[in-house]
């Protein structure tokens, strides 16, 4: 199947939805949002905790509420959405190949493209912890999806490596669901998470935060049985003699996010080696004219409100681009 659209938005998270809405507000029609998940809203759907929307809506919302408000705004327009549809490739000529189970492979020709694919978590491979490779090791975000969307508990006795906000939030979530979280280990001398999360996710439940400590070995054959942790020196190297064994059946890695730019690279879009996001000279336009980027695919944001603010601009610039082409 072949389609022609004015604007194709890849990714239906808060970035994609805000950009699409702004394009529409600026008079552009025939807009299509393509999302690989079964529902719109992106990562917000699994972030069931409060802490979103203070700036955009002036009240504190949970992630799903923030997403639902944008989904509702979108359904009041003629913007089309294709969920359960995975974009496979993008070209410099703005041709998108996507696949879904009902239509098969779809070829979408767009006048402008907005990249809004979000980010993904660094995986254990990138961290290189020695030891076995048993089951029971998850990134904190994967565990969050399992618990909050699929309703599956990853394990009963959890250790969390890294003290980023997602890890802290999962420490509370697993505890509320009846699991034991025996501790959070952070290699740096200071937590990367918000103070509020340390208080409300760890201190409230008596979960210890161990600073300047990291995992040096993973144990277990089929399923993880424990890890060895050790204190680190100022060069972050483990100090001999400080090793301790910690029993667990689940290890969550909360170790940072990187923009998801495989599609962008495939299209030949320049990527900034530092931010891992597309190089955008001005107006969120990538090195390819007419291809814009916003949200976590552009750079990793802490606050969804800022994602929305910037994505609105990206949507406006995309609309301007289309108008300038048709004049």
């Amino acid at each position: 199947m072949k389609m022609n659209v004015n604007v194709a938005v890849i990714g239906g998270g808060p970035a994609g939805l805000a950009a699409a809405l702004e394009c529409r507000k600026n008079g552009i029609d025939n807009i299509l949002v393509i999302e690989r998940d079964k529902q719109l809203g992106g990562i917000l759907n699994q972030c069931i905790h409060p802490g979103f929307g203070l700036h955009v809506f002036g009240e504190e919302l949970t992630g799903p509420e923030y997403a639902q408000r944008y989904i509702d705004m979108l359904s009041d327009t003629d913007i089309r959405t294709m969920t359960d549809t995975m974009v496979l490739s993008l070209t410099l000529q703005k041709v998108i190949r996507a696949v879904n189970t009902t239509l098969g492979v779809v070829e979408i020709h767009a006048k402008a493209v907005i990249l809004a694919m979000g980010c993904r978590e660094r995986t254990r491979g990138m961290l290189r912890i020695p030891g076995t490779r048993p089951a029971g090791i998850y990134t904190a975000g994967t565990a969050q999806r399992l618990v909050n969307i699929e309703g599956l508990m990853p394990g009963k006795n959890t250790v969390i490596l890294g003290s980023g906000d997602i890890g802290l939030i999962m420490a509370r979530r697993m505890t509320l669901e009846g699991a034991k979280v025996s501790g959070v280990y952070e290699i740096m001398p200071k937590s990367g998470g918000l103070k509020r999360n340390i208080v409300q996710c760890l201190n409230d439940f008596g979960i210890p935060l161990h600073l300047s400590k990291t995992a040096v070995e993973i144990h277990g054959r089929e399923r993880i049985e424990g890890i060895t942790v050790a204190a680190v020196d100022e060069n972050l190297s483990p100090i001999k003699g400080t090793e301790e064994y910690v029993e667990c059946d689940t290890l969550l890695l909360s170790v940072g996010l990187i923009p998801e730019n495989e599609l962008s690279r495939g299209a030949g879009i320049l990527i900034d080696p530092k931010t891992k996001g597309p190089v955008c000279e001005s107006g969120f336009e990538t090195s390819v004219p007419g291809i814009f980027a916003c949200g976590n695919v552009y750079k990793v944001y802490d606050l969804v409100d800022n994602v929305t603010k910037d994505s609105v601009l990206a949507g406006r610039y995309a609309a301007e681009y289309i108008r300038s082409k048709s004049e």
Binding site: K38, Q39, I48, P50, N148, G151, L176, E177, D204
Partner: peptide, 21 residues
């Protein structure tokens, strides 16, 4: 006091859980 967020079982939805607060 704390705002509590969690999920409940959902039948007939896109996913088996519904987020609540």
């Amino acid at each position: 006091e704390r705002v509590l967020t969690s999920t409940v079982r959902l039948a007939g939805g896109t996913y088996p859980r519904l987020s609540v607060k």
